[in-house]
Design a protein around this nucleic acid. Sequence first.
DNA 1: TTCCGCTGTGAATATTTGTTCACACTTATA
DNA 2: TATAAGTGTGAACAAATATTCACAGCGGAA
Lengths: 219, 219
Amino acid sequence: MKKILIADDNADLRESIAEVLTEAGFYTETATNGKEAAAKSAETDFDIVLLDMLMPVMKGAEALTEIKKTRPAAKVIVMTAFSTIENAVEIIKKGAADYIVKPFKVEQLLTIVRREIEEAGFEKDILNIDLDRVMNCLSNPIRRNIVKYLHRNKEMRFMELNRELEMDDHTKLVFHLKILREAGISTQDKNKNYMLTREGLRVFQCLTFIENYLSARSD
Amino acid sequence: MKKILIADDNADLRESIAEVLTEAGFYTETATNGKEAAAKSAETDFDIVLLDMLMPVMKGAEALTEIKKTRPAAKVIVMTAFSTIENAVEIIKKGAADYIVKPFKVEQLLTIVRREIEEAGFEKDILNIDLDRVMNCLSNPIRRNIVKYLHRNKEMRFMELNRELEMDDHTKLVFHLKILREAGISTQDKNKNYMLTREGLRVFQCLTFIENYLSARSD
DNA sequence: TTCCGCTGTGAATATTTGTTCACACTTATA
DNA sequence: TATAAGTGTGAACAAATATTCACAGCGGAA
């Protein structure tokens, strides 16, 4: 059962939302301010957090930051009465999954909640990745390079890769390709061309993210 | 010199923006549709891409996706005449750095561009990270766990970590802590508390990104 | 003071990764 | 068909990583 946390200082609204969502088949908890919301979120892994922006003790914006810190995977839907585009942009950049303007109809909220739930499921499923193995693959610069080349060239022959990577001993490349294959990152088609799998593509994207995120480039 | 790509099908607007930005000391190139923008972006590593939403051949939204695929680090500022909150939210979720509504004053645009440049610089500089070492650290599940605990608890004593991780032999933990320290991910204060460095925080963020991005969790 | 838990060192050892080598089968092509 | 380039296997070896063990200083509590 999907778990939803509702944070709003207005008791009426809070309870009525909780009621609706409970009826709709979700497990709900409530919080009356940002601090409480952050604490409950740290404690329980909610799928969705409905967060009012204007609350006492801790504002929603701050709570949002806190929540994302402990639960980066949680989908936070921000509710606000004071709405401008700048505002919305700011909130989404801070990591909110969506933004709903008060007053809203229950139907609207339900639609958004369901969409986010679906998205969360979509993002998580399908892929079959062994994090340990993948990290192992990425820990080796040769393999990181292979992934990059395979992404760039879509598909490559063995010797092509060998030349690009300037490998001295071709069996060394065989070795690394095997590891990538066993980790589900690369495959071969019937013509022996090497290419990334769907998972491999994901891994590549992670890799570029990491490199962008961690590398200091002087400019 | 910071490089900016301006993509808009309106020649007047395009050229006048280019002129202003060039005068302001940026290197500029232009594109007349999304496809061209994506191509130019793939070829050159622009710091900023100004992207109109309504263009022939390839819409801005699609172009945005393409650009982020090859240049996840590029800051894409979306320009649009048709603006609603839903719209803005959607665009930001797709990875745009900012959103500006047409018609806008040149001053506004300059402010936004400068802010994004500054942010990009802030994100890139300073950090001194050895990718190879970091990947090596992350390839070990024990060390990944240490990083997580250190992030969660801000600072921890040795034995505290030891208990949390349920290590059998404490010297094993010493070993891994040493590696993390040498990679610049963790440090100790004068009281021997272990904690993440600034770089370590970054590494933690990468880690959660990776886990979110790659992991399939059954629910 | 004595004892005990916390924090650590260094060396020995075990395990996992990576490299090299000798060899072999396939496919294309001279 | 003979030859060479492309692709691959398995075992031996080398190097890097991880684990274990024996031991020791230090600070606080009994």
